[in-house]
Amino acid sequence: MKAKILIGKPGLDGHDRGLRAVAKALQVAGFEVIYSGLYQSPEDFVDKAISENVDVIGLSVMTGAYNVIFPRVMELLEEKGANNIPVFGGGIIPEEDVPELKKNGIKEIFLPGATLEEIVEFVKNLLNKRIA
């Protein structure tokens, strides 16, 4: 069975060019990709991840709300007992803020300059590790 990935950006950020490209690259690499659609609340987004029983969550934030959205999603996953689902993210995020986000349990944050191939490789490794 194909591994399932939920890709999206909760909140009011509509910049979907990057995440759409990532979604496509993951689909081409053989994953089943679910695109959340825009303007979901973090609650609806996390509920979707749980109801779709996804293996990985990819989050994108291109605005200043990353320090609200990322922790909120992690908090909700924990509350709902779904913090076994690994989460990675990407966006225009100042490098100095990345360690703080990782402390919340986010596996990796991809910054400008990351290639699609790097992201696909990362997800593959993430899933291999989890299966093993």
Binding site: G11, S41, I69
Partner: peptide, 22 residues
Amino acid sequence: DLPTLMGKDSDDPISEGEVGRC
């Protein structure tokens, strides 16, 4: 900012973290 662009007030829960940012 994004809440204004989306027709949301600054005190709407979905606006949190976006008020006055962009």
